[in-house]
Design a binder for these strands. Structure first.
Length: 494
RNA sequence: GGGGCUAUCGUCUAGGGGUCAGGACACCGCCCUUUCACGGCGGUAACACGGGUUCAAAUCCCGUUAGCCCUACCA
């Protein structure tokens, strides 16, 4: 019988939630959901100097905004609580377990205390490199110079190193990259626990150690992570073996690069998930765009072949997701595609689906006036701006409905505010039926009376109402502004 | 320096010994149009380089180059 699939996302709370991390989390989430498994959120906060509670909150909020819900992990807003049977899910709260496991290795002589100071190691490194060799602790020219042979000065605090195999290859089986071999002699005895506070004490364990213990104790079956960790895996595999742990399956997903092919960083623009949120993107669009980087969904063995097929729902993504259809190479982040996806997804949403996402943006534009509007009004406002690329575009396109034009586009005034157009505008003030049909009928009657084309009146009206020749459909514009306000805005032109 | 990963239009990719090398985004053009958009139609554009193997290589092998990752008492 096969175990339930378990994946995990294990960020360290040392800054904002990076879009690359979100993508990794998304893959873990898709994989778990597809197989009816569990998805764990684990906080890797063993870097004491950089980890903060605030950053943990940022991770939790970012994940929640993206719709990546976790089955096990921290409970938002309460560090002492967690959900799931293998907690706690913050590594600093798991110290007792780590220390016990390290003691176990020490007892079996699979690890040893190291009292070499940084300075001493630096000096030995220089010696080795001066001889044209690569420095590796307790390897090659450095063999026998370290603490492996045990000259215990028990009165000194010590770090702890893991004894790595010295020969042969370490093979990393990987669902995306295939089997990857690492020569054991390219690795050395690495530190599993930092220098302790006092003699005989075990310090804070390091990342590569905690991952192995946690992934096993949390019963993770599939370790899906960024391929920057591929090189860490050969360090971890002998540790699994030392504990007698089963190896989980590994899948190292390619990195996301900036438009210029360099690692995605701040200078490329937005890297933090909250920035994407602020740009007026739908979380569903972010999910789709991120998923489509390095993953090609295949329907009956065939890659998606049309714009229509590109627009997968979450359900479809979950159903179609397969690590075998993932790219091995890094992908550049394409903002244009994200925006296109966003636009398409906005278009196919109902106004009710859109409203909660649009709300914060339009509340700002309207200074809170949005809230008081009727559902009928909101529906119309949303539907007539639903062609926008982003929620910010939509909110901006609605600004005219909430405030009078601060200025008038001079060129437009000159072009459209002709004497005859003003005459027509005067007639327009007489319209009382602000239903779509009523407006259309009244509009046409006025046009006929003055021998004008739709464009002539519509543009003059846009200028008068919005200050510029751009707005939603002219009847929508009139209805959203409302008769009283239309008359008020028209006054100065009559 | 050592080790690892990667390489098809500008971008994301399909294809994986014989294809006019396919699609999507972007871009360009035309059409539609009460503005801005949306939409419709069409177009430009790629197998990193060099050697092999083979009747035949984008596809298999080797090398080169380039990019990225690891090489921390960071994760």
């Amino acid at each position: 019988m096969s175990r339930q699939i378990v994946t995990r996302f294990a960020p360290s709370p040392t800054g904002m939630l990076h879009i690359g991390g979100v993508r990794t989390a998304l893959f873990c989430w898709l994989f778990a959901r597809k197989h009816g498994g569990r998805f764990i959120l684990r906080i890797e906060d063993t870097d004491l100097s950089r980890s903060t509670d605030d950053n943990i909150r940022i991770i939790e909020e970012g994940m929640a905004w993206c719709g990546l819900d976790w089955d096990e992990g921290p409970v938002v807003g309460d560090a002492s609580q967690w959900k799931g049977p293998h907690g706690p899910y913050r590594q600093m709260q798991r110290m007792d377990l780590y220390k016990a496991k390290i003691q176990e290795l020490l007892d079996k002589n699979l690890a040893y205390r190291c009292r070499c100071s940084r300075e001493a190691i630096e000096e030995r490194r220089k010696t080795v490199e001066a001889a044209g060799k690569v420095f590796q602790y307790n390897r090659g020219l450095d063999a026998g110079k370290g603490c492996a042979a045990a000259h215990h000065d028990a009165s000194q605090p010590a770090a702890i190193r893991f004894r790595m195999p010295e020969s042969g290859d370490i093979v990393v089986p990987d669902l995306i990259k295939g089997d990857t071999r690492f020569p054991a002699d390219s690795l050395d005895d690495w530190i599993i626990a930092r220098t302790g506070d006092g003699p005989g004490e075990i310090g804070v364990p390091t990342y590569n150690f905690c991952v192995v213990v946690d992934d096993t104790h949390m019963q993770v079956t599939h370790v899906i992570r960024g391929d920057d960790h591929l090189n860490n895996t050969p360090k971890q595999i002998p540790l699994f073996a030392a504990f007698g742990y089963d190896l989980p399956a590994f899948a190292h997903v390619p990195m996301i690069l900036g438009a210029d092919g360099a690692k995605l960083s701040k200078r490329h623009g937005a890297t933090s998930i909250t920035e994407y949120q602020a740009m007026g993107l739908l979380p569903s669009a972010v999910r789709l765009a991120l998923a489509r980087l390095s993953w090609t969904p295949k329907i009956d063995g065939k890659a998606v072949e049309s714009a229509e097929e590109e627009l997968l729902t979450d359900e479809q993504m979950i159903q179609l997701f397969d690590l075998a259809d993932c790219q091995k190479s890094a992908a550049r982040f394409d903002m244009d595609k994200l925006q296109w996806l966003n636009q398409k997804l906005i278009q196919r949403s109902t106004w009710q689906e859109l409203e909660p996402h649009l709300r914060p943006f339009v509340m700002e534009v309207s200074k809170g006036a949005w809230e008081a509007k009727s559902d009928v009004w909101k529906a119309q406002a949303i539907q007539c701006t639903q062609k926008g690329k982003s929620l910010t575009d939509m909110a901006e396109a609605l600004r005219f409905a909430f405030e009078r034009p601060a200025a008038f586009d001079e060129k437009a005034v000159e072009k459209f505010m002709t004497p005859v157009a003003k005459l027509a505008l005067r007639d327009l003030a007489g319209l009382t039926d602000y239903s779509h049909e009523g407006l259309e009928a009244g509009f046409n009657a006025i046009l006929e009376r003055h021998g004008l084309k739709t464009k002539d009146l519509a543009q003059a009206l846009r200028v008068a109402l919005c200050g510029k020749p751009v707005s939603p459909g002219i009847y929508d514009t009139l209805m959203l502004v409302g008769r009283d306000e239309v008359l008020a805005r028209l006054e100065r032109w009559l």
